[in-house]
Design a protein around this nucleic acid. Structure first.
Lengths: 336, 336
DNA sequence: GTGAAAGCGCTAACAC
DNA sequence: GTGTTAGCGCTTTCAC
């Protein structure tokens, strides 16, 4: 750790000297609250201007024992849900001078932990994360005073500074069932990533079907393992189920699975929605322009991001549990 | 600014006390370099472990006069180019303990300036930005010691701490021409956002055409003003040019214009590529699954992000000018 | 090999 | 009203 590497820049002392006052006075005019004489006020402001001085949020944070940064740990940025989350967090955080650190885990537990540690080193004031294998780290950060917001989690660690913001996944599932049933489908395959959210969405759909007296042809969601490449197994499953006549709709229950599922259906040569209906998850610019346009179930990700940031900034230590409702966007891929 | 709000957490002093040594010694074993007796070394490490102590990068930064954060200011996250940029920056920055702050301008100059100021307040060590209306701010940050990397800029401010990383936009344009010409098209319309990059790409295409003795039917790119909604004007332009027989290909020269252009062509009912060829910019997961699949010209965004971060961390003050080469991904939308 | 002390840039008591 | 002083958590001379 070399010392003083950057070119000198104006500090509060520089400004004080130039204005012929003490650093305390400079601090006072900059932060307001206390009364300062008109003359001094002007001299200080002039000095600030002349020296292009901007107080260091860094030093302020050291003093206050709390920074103005939030740690945002996501899996990647290819899911529109994550993108909107960033948007939402920024919208709430920025106005109060808070900036989010963005880190991507790419679903690697090792990376996940490293990034969390890094954020802790940087003393983020709050953490918003989709991490799943780092409860111990999160707990120790909460213990140390960091507000932690867990996204899309089913577990609910008991700590006043650990909050949970999630979608009502069961509702998303039953919403999928209702839409598909309404359009005349009942032989549904659910495709998902292997996450609590995905399982809950399946459960929601299966339960809703049961209430209507229908049993799904497949009694568990098809779990995608490798998200980076087309799934041969999925392709085969859809092809054989369809041939057996036990399939008239596929519900991709998570953002990433949407692409892989669409791809599988198309590669078999099945026509959507004539041969088979396709209901996707998350909305993205191109969904409307696909052939056919895609029906999707969408989470209010921007709102969820805003809520997460609000908890950190405005309701620390309140152990929030927030649940948001999904929305259906019906387009052609599930049309009758 | 309230003081001491967060619950106390272990500081270097806590560790020192518990290990029965001075803070200086703790610092020494944590940072290495100096020799410390075996016994003390162990006691300190044990205390660190027991107290779950993690040194504050914040305080270190105050002392060192330089943080481990980078400011990343982008327009939005809907363009795959930006997403890959984040990926690239993280890949280089994270391993050395550097975390990027992410801010979105949504192309609003006001927001752009606010975010830049915020980042400066946070004393980012370096800045990577697509900002266009804030040269004065960038210059003052560079002056104060912040490494600034301008992305996609044609101007080149003269300062050792202001760097430029960009695509060879002319090459992208001529690459577009060559591909389209090869597949038998020459009556090309270029659609773009109103940016230096877009203009250069048009210029590159027009010049290449000229070299081949061809004059474009339209002597300037169609500049999209509102990126958030379909463009009626674009739709009309394409329809009328096509009817006149002066159009057999459209080149969307920027990431966002790709969507709006595709939309316009489709809404007219023109068939791609039979009636008209369509060449897009930037690659994204769905491009391959559109009907037809989209041919695109792609910038090596991940590499560009890595380069930008490297400049900040490894080559400060070297006034870099980097130019990257685009790549063509040929698919069905430009097939013969 | 280890401790005491100064100082990074800033804010908040406490005097005057 | 304004200056003086102490101190936030850390690193680094400088003594011992």
């Amino acid at each position: 750790m070399t010392r003083r590497v950057a070119p000198r820049r104006a500090t509060i002392a520089t400004v004080a000297e130039r204005a012929g006052v003490s650093t305390a006075t400079v601090s006072r005019v900059l932060n307001g609250g206390v009364t300062v004489s008109e003359a001094v006020h002007e001299r200080v402001l002039a000095a600030v201007e002349a020296l292009n001085y901007r107080p260091s949020d860094l030093t302020r944070a050291v003093f206050a024992g709390r920074t103005n940064s939030i740690g945002l740990l996501l899996a990647d940025l290819h899911n529109p849900y994550y993108v909107d989350l960033v948007e939402g967090v920024s919208r709430v955080a920025n106005p109060s001078g808070t900036l989010p650190y963005l880190a991507l885990s790419n679903r690697d537990p090792e990376t996940e932990r490293k990034m969390l540690s890094l954020m802790d080193s940087h003393r983020v004031r709050g953490l918003i994360t989709v991490a799943r294998k780092s409860d111990d780290l999160v707990m120790s950060m909460a213990e140390a005073g960091t507000e932690c917001v867990l996204m899309a989690r089913d577990t609910e660690p008991d700590h006043p500074r650990i909050h949970v913001v999630r979608l009502d996944d069961r509702a998303a599932g039953s919403m999928a069932w209702e839409h598909l049933a309404e359009t005349g489908r009942s032989r549904i395959l659910v495709v998902s990533q292997d996450t609590p959210a995905g399982r809950d969405r399946f459960r929601g759909l299966a339960d809703a079907a049961k209430r209507d007296g229908v049993t799904l042809p497949v009694d568990a969601p098809f779990m995608l393992d490798n998200l980076a490449a087309p799934s041969e197994k999925l392709r085969e499953l859809i092809a054989s189920e369809f041939k057996n006549g036990t399939l008239d709709a596929v519900f991709a229950a998570t953002g990433i699975s949407t692409l892989r599922t669409f791809e599988a259906i198309n590669s078999i040569g099945l026509r959507i929605p004539d041969d088979i209906a396709f209901l996707a998850f998350e909305d993205f610019a191109w969904a409307e322009h696909m052939t056919p346009s895609l029906s999707t179930i969408v989470q209010p990700a921007v709102k969820m991001g805003m809520a997460a940031a609000s908890i950190i900034l405005d309701e620390p230590g309140s152990g929030q549990r927030l649940r948001f409702e999904p929305k259906l966007v019906a387009r052609s891929s599930t049309a009758v």
